[in-house]
Write a protein that binds this DNA or RNA. Structure first.
Length: 338
DNA sequence: GGGCCAATACTG
DNA sequence: CAGTAT
DNA sequence: GCCC
């Protein structure tokens, strides 16, 4: 799945702005607006040659229309040019694209006088994960061919099965959505007997380190077996035997009951996740990667503040039932590139 | 003018 | 607790 | 940023 994208002249600059707002300025909402517009534009079956063609497009309002108009008539986008010329914006945005460095620390490092990733490398105050993010900056940012993700999915499934028969490993994310290139690998793990997933991640990770597949840890979250709804999590880097190139890989282990929700959440895309959660909200439910729950309005005595709590869980045995329950038309994974 | 997904978990 | 990430 |  690799749509041609006939509007790269527009989505290119928009993509840069999206990254600047997200990584440099920490403005996720504005970044998300560009994200949605890009998503819409890159799937158009024709090239936009006049701003009238997007007059009524969803996610493209007054401001983005003006941007498109400017690109069509001048071939450039002054807003972006301005950012490009702004060393502070440019640098902070670059720093913020390092794994482990967010907008706040990106600014902090800039104000300390750093101007390049090389400068950053010499800073003593980097945390362990920031150092890793920096060390493998190129590797982490490199797209992964679909074939390699497929190989990893099979490899991990095989090893997982050997440890615990019946374990299921699925590679989610953009891989499951059918993309020909993926950013990272999101492995979703479960077991149909409802209990064998407990404590499994620790064993899997150990095994994957033994064979030199997992190389660096970024985040580990193992839980006690008593805690039923906690999700064991692992973020890290991996590589192929005989190769040094690292890839970002995540593991999430769900109970059989949570599995359909985990699968949806980790398959995405994020636009769909938000849409589903808003729909659930409107029906008086809360949706996340572990389940669908009745919303309980909880009136705090002080003030008129009303907060929401998770109530009774709705059982869904597969993704379809979740879509159906919240009232969203069913989408195959490869139709979820919204 | 104000909401915009949601909850959790790690790190320092 | 603030920051970061998913 | 978009959309009520």
């Amino acid at each position: 799945y690799a749509p041609p994208n006939l509007n790269q002249n527009i989505t290119g600059p928009f993509g840069e702005l999206r990254d600047i707002y997200k990584n440099g300025l920490g403005d996720n909402r504005r970044s998300y607006s560009y994200h949605k517009a890009i998503s819409y534009l890159e799937k158009l079956p024709y090239q936009v040659t006049s701003v009238y063609q997007v007059k009524n497009a969803p996610s493209i309002g007054k401001s983005l229309q003006n941007h498109i108009q400017e690109i069509l008539s001048t071939g450039k986008l002054s807003k972006l040019e301005h950012f490009r010329d702004d060393e502070k914006v440019k640098t902070v945005s670059l720093f913020g694209s390092v794994w482990g460095i967010g907008p706040s620390n990106a600014l902090k490092y800039y104000e300390k006088g750093h101007r390049s990733l090389e400068d950053l490398r010499h800073d003593e105050s980097l945390t362990r994960t920031q150092r890793l993010g920096l060390q493998y900056f190129e590797d982490i940012n490199a797209k992964i061919p679909r074939s390699e993700a497929n190989y990893v999915e099979n490899l991990v499934q095989e090893i997982a099965s050997a440890i615990q028969p019946g374990i299921s490993v699925v590679c989610g994310g953009s891989y499951r959505r059918g993309k020909s290139l993926v950013g990272d690998m999101d492995m979703i793990v479960t077991h149909s007997d409802g209990t064998s997933h407990k404590g499994f991640l620790r064993r899997l990770i150990q095994r994957l380190k033994d064979i030199d597949f997992l190389t660096e840890d970024l985040l580990i979250g193992y839980h006690e077996e008593l805690n039923d709804d906690a999700v064991d999590t692992y973020f890290g880097l991996c590589k192929y035997p005989g190769r040094e190139q690292r890839h970002r890989i995540d593991f999430k282990v769900y109970s059989w009951e949570q599995y359909p929700f985990g699968l949806i959440a980790w398959t995405g895309n994020d636009v769909l996740n938000r849409r589903l959660r808003i729909l659930a909200n409107e029906k008086g439910y809360k949706l996340d990667d572990t389940g669908l729950y009745r919303t309980i309005l909880y009136e705090k005595h002080k003030r008129h503040k009303v907060s929401k709590l998770k109530g009774a869980r709705v059982i869904c045995k597969n993704e379809k039932e979740v879509f159906e329950f919240v009232g969203h038309p069913w989408l195959e994974p490869n139709e979820r590139n919204l």
